[in-house]
Nucleic acid binder design. Structure first.
Length: 557
RNA sequence: GCCCCUAUAGCUCAGGGGAUAGAGCGCCGCCCUCCGGAGGCGGAAGCCUAGGUUCGAAUCCUAGUAGGGGCACCA
């Protein structure tokens, strides 16, 4: 019995009590109730606080209310015992057979165990990373790659229709500066002031010239700079895509900022239609020769410029056009994952959405992730593309490995500032939890492999899984669906990782106390087969969970 | 000055208003005749401060204190 099933059982009991006239609930019977696993042993398998929540409106005291619910619940076959405790908690002990059935159900569900339709019908645009195509991806991007991808996966597992999108900032001064920097490097000239200084610029210049020697023959001037810019852009974007594929991070859409603008005289471009939409809503105003969006109408602390007095469009104009474009493509909800250095954008993005006539609480959602620091040899490594010292995604993958790196970044909430110690996570020893979880998975597989060699297959005998450690493991496995739902709702995939660590722990303890396979020449019995079902169910949950984090579930290690 | 994030064990961090606040590392001690010891068991050790809301606060609110980040007609 999963917590969801228990919640439904309790709701039914409440409805029956109301029908009997035993209680009255003026606000109606809730559609679901809180069910949690008590920390304390002796408080049953599950506890609920319904009596504490509902007693007031029922016009009675919590303990009396609890007694009524307890009596009704004991009529259910799936429930072995109910106790009223403390101020009015209901401590529920689930029937062993009903608990053991979870293992059979999980094996039957297989890869789909844990999935739900909680977000069915929601069309979500999930934008993350969105780097300038002017250099390699670095540690900061790496965190968003992991979190964005995992958020996408838990949302999909919850039934949402998710499009992962990478916004390519391929327009504006930075691109010109980038082109000029590569051009200068190609001709052994000093990099322009404020230009890109990284060592990769020189490598990139050499590579481009090797591929197309004609670049060196071009006459000096703006056209040559553009030629270098475009060649460098293409190479850098290709490299980013390659790095992300290597890192198991897939995007559905790579969206070019330039595409929003179209050609200069394009009257149908997203920028034109986006501005028109704002004009129609009445939130544009001319001032000092510039065009402003009155975001202060919606809680921004200052208005924002869209078209500068020199006629240039601001980056924010692109942002606005991009948002309108997403909405026109049918996305109900546009999620942005931004670094803490962009937190100042939250209010203006929300206000911008409101200016287009949308509901900023529903149609747009901006998640802010705190920055990652990385320590090596006891010193913080500074991450600056322009300074040229940076830890790049592929360096990290090479040193740490995809699984350990993804897992290390996925197990912390985005809003906690994170410090990773290179030595520590490259040690790849037991203090890296990914090994603990993956090892548990490999262990389940080893048992199933040995069982197959013995001609033993899992078989459903739910009544036999009565050992304390079996119960603990079953309850952990039963949690999985609601852990996924919570991770999706709160956009907190780290909950999956923490859950897997706890579940792996439950499995290791079960393994230690409960012999699964027959010993020596012992005759195989139903208990062996029942435990194999539990092992198979554990393997399913660990594999499904690791998959949600984009981490592999190795059969052997 | 204004805005955002953070503050929990010696260290790195979990903890969706519930009962006696958890895990890893480190420290002290214990467990291998047979399914993988990359494991298990036990011990010492903690919610920044002051108010408030609540039957109940690490969790929500207010004010402090400390640390990090941000406040462009930049991209």
């Amino acid at each position: 019995m999963t917590p969801e099933q228990l919640s439904a059982t309790i709701v039914d009991a409440l409805a029956a009590l109301v029908a009997d006239g035993a209680i009255t609930l003026p606000d109606g019977v809730p559609t679901r109730v809180t069910v949690e696993r008590p920390r304390q042993k002796g408080h049953g398998d599950y506890a609920t606080n319904v009596a504490l929540q509902l007693a007031k409106q029922a016009g009675t005291n919590p303990r009396a209310f609890a007694e009524l619910v307890a009596k009704k619940l004991t009529e259910s076959d799936a429930i072995a015992d109910v106790e009223v405790a403390g101020p009015g908690f209901l401590n529920i002990t689930v029937d062993a057979g009903a608990q053991g059935q979870v293992a059979t159900d999980i094996v039957a569900a297989g890869e789909s165990y844990g999935a739900s339709d909680a977000f069915a019908g929601e069309k979500i645009n999930l934008e993350f990373i969105s780097a300038n195509p002017t250099g390699p991806l670095h540690l900061g991007h790496t965190r968003w790659a992991v979190l964005g991808d995992a958020i996408g996966r838990v949302l999909e597992a919850s039934g949402a229709d998710v499009t992962r999108e990478f916004y390519i900032n391929d327009r504006g001064n930075q691109m010109n500066l980038f082109g000029a920097s590569v051009e200068a490097a190609a001709f052994d000239q000093p990099i322009p002031e404020n230009g890109y200084q990284g060592g990769y610029i020189l490598d990139l210049a050499r590579k481009l010239v090797a591929e197309d020697p004609g670049l060196l023959e071009l006459p000096e001037g703006p056209d040559r700079t553009v030629a270098f810019r475009e060649a460098a852009y293409g190479a850098q974007l290709a490299e980013q895509r390659e790095q992300l594929e290597l890192f198991q991070t897939h995007f559905d859409v790579w969206f070019s900022e330039r595409a929003l603008h179209g050609s200069d005289d394009d009257t149908e471009s997203s920028v034109v239609t986006g501005l028109q939409k704002l004009r129609d809503q009445g939130h544009l105003v001319d001032n000092d020769g510039a065009l402003w969006m009155r975001t202060t109408d919606f809680d921004d602390d200052k208005d924002r410029v869209l078209i500068k007095s020199n006629g240039d469009l601001t980056y924010f104009a692109s942002d606005t056009a991009y948002y309108v474009n997403k909405r026109e493509r049918g996305f109900d909800r546009c999620i942005y994952l931004l670094g803490a250095d962009h937190h100042g954008y939250v209010n203006r993005l929300r206000a911008m959405a409101a200016c287009t006539g949308d509901d900023p609480d529903r149609n747009i959602e901006v998640l802010i992730g705190q920055l990652v620091k990385i320590i090596k040899g006891g010193e913080e490594m500074r991450l600056s593309k322009r300074a040229g010292t940076m830890v790049t995604l592929d360096e990290l993958v090479e040193e740490i490995g995809v699984d350990a790196l993804r897992y290390s970044l996925a197990r912390y909430p985005a809003d906690s500032p994170l410090t990773l110690d290179v030595e520590q996570i490259t040690k790849a020893s037991s203090d890296n939890p990914v090994f603990y979880v993956q090892y548990a998975h490999a262990r389940t597989n080893a048992i199933l492999r040995n069982a197959a060699d013995l001609g033993l297959a899992p078989e459903s005998h739910p009544d036999l899984l009565v050992h304390e450690k079996e119960g603990e493991l079953l309850r952990a496995l039963a949690e999985f669906p609601r852990v996924i739902t919570a991770a999706a709702e709160l956009r907190e995939p780290h909950r999956i990782a923490r859950y897997l660590e706890a579940t792996a722990g439950s499995y290791h303890r079960f393994y230690d106390s409960c012999r699964v396979l027959p010993m020596g020449d012992e005759e195989p019995g139903d208990l062996h087969k029942a435990r194999l079902t539990l092992v198979q169910a554990t393997k399913t949950v660990l594999a499904n969970g690791l998959h949600l984090l984009g981490v592999s579930a190795p059969e052997r290690m």
